[in-house]
């Protein structure tokens, strides 16, 4: 039986595919998008997240850390990340969860058991299980085993992906899932490299291959003010969609609910401050897509 590393299981998910779903977040991502609101998803290993406001100052973390990487600052625990060996011992002793482990290993069986807990509501709502992340395609063998088990249980599955994986991985997994939610961000290669840390080519090529084979794909575009929302990117996106024979797109407006997590992981939030897109902006973007024949859909469609 295979094992994978998961950092969150969210039940009653309404935005990751049809119906009411359980979304399983895979840890590890080949991208490092500036605007990422799940920064804990990037590192493929379990790591420590600080919740300093919970700290009681009991110092049990200091005693537990074999590397001497933890100290108690004025505002709770501080981790010298360069010393941290990710042993997670501090998270085991902290009574208040001021140091929390993010990410844990699941066997296929364990994960499927969790995923099936809400089966009753999948049946009722036309929902199922979604795999998101991070990038679920970074753990392909594990994902495949989980998908195959869920298929046997007749559960609808969705893979939410950046498409940044070898084609063979997508091809292999396509046989076991019902739908890809495909997040296209930036088409220009240089921009993509700058803001996501990876070339756009793989994602675009893989999308073409998926659509050529008639596999079910829904494309989504994160609307990130001043990064993805400019007209050059929109027009390039239209071109790609048309080449793929796709006429619909879902927009995912940027939100900043996860920004606070950066400091908890001692990571830098590169955009500084980003406003959530105003509804007038969104309708302008929508207008530009629709004028060029791409229908903007919402998740209800």
């Amino acid at each position: 039986m295979r094992k994978g590393i998961i950092f969150n299981i969210q039940r009653y998910s309404l935005h990751d595919g049809p119906g009411i779903r359980t979304t399983i977040f895979f840890k590890g991502c080949p991208l490092s998008c500036w605007w990422c609101q799940n920064p804990e998803s990037i590192n493929p290993h379990a790591e420590v997240m600080r919740q300093p406001e919970r700290c009681l100052g009991c110092s049990s973390c200091l005693d537990a850390c074999p590397e001497g990487a933890v100290r108690i600052g004025e505002a709770g625990p501080v981790i010298e990340r360069s010393l941290c060996s990710l042993c997670l011992k501090c998270t085991l002793v902290c009574p208040a969860d001021a140091l929390e482990a993010v990410g844990r290993e699941y066997t296929t069986q364990e994960l499927v058991k969790e995923a099936l807990k809400d089966r009753f509501i999948f049946d009722n709502s036309g929902g199922g299980v979604s795999f998101s992340g991070g990038e679920p395609l970074m753990q392909p063998e594990f994902l495949q085993e989980v998908l195959m088990t869920l298929k046997k249980e007749d559960v609808h599955t969705v893979i939410d992906t950046s498409g940044c994986a070898p084609w063979t991985v997508l091809e292999q997994l396509a046989a076991h899932t019902d739908l890809f939610l495909y997040d296209l961000k930036l088409i220009d290669d240089l921009e993509s490299r700058k803001y996501t840390g990876i070339s756009s080519r793989l994602a675009v090529d893989n999308l073409k291959k998926l659509t050529e084979r008639g596999l079910p794909v829904k494309v989504r575009m994160p609307v990130i003010p001043s990064i993805t929302d400019h007209y050059v990117n929109i027009d390039a996106m239209v071109k790609v969609l048309k080449e793929c024979g796709l006429g619909k797109l879902e927009l995912i407006p940027y939100h900043n609910y996860g920004t606070a997590k950066y400091s908890k992981l001692d990571l830098e939030y590169r955009p500084g401050t980003l406003e959530m897109p105003a509804s007038e902006e969104l309708s302008k973007i929508k207008g530009r897509f629709e004028k060029q024949g791409i229908k903007i859909i919402n998740e209800d469609d």
């Binding site: 309404l14 009411i20 009753f120 509501i121 009722n124 709502s125 929902g127």
Partner: peptide, 14 residues
Amino acid sequence: GNKGLESLASLIRS
């Protein structure tokens, strides 16, 4: 939205 409403209905029925 409609999805929120339908999901509420599903939650109740379930």
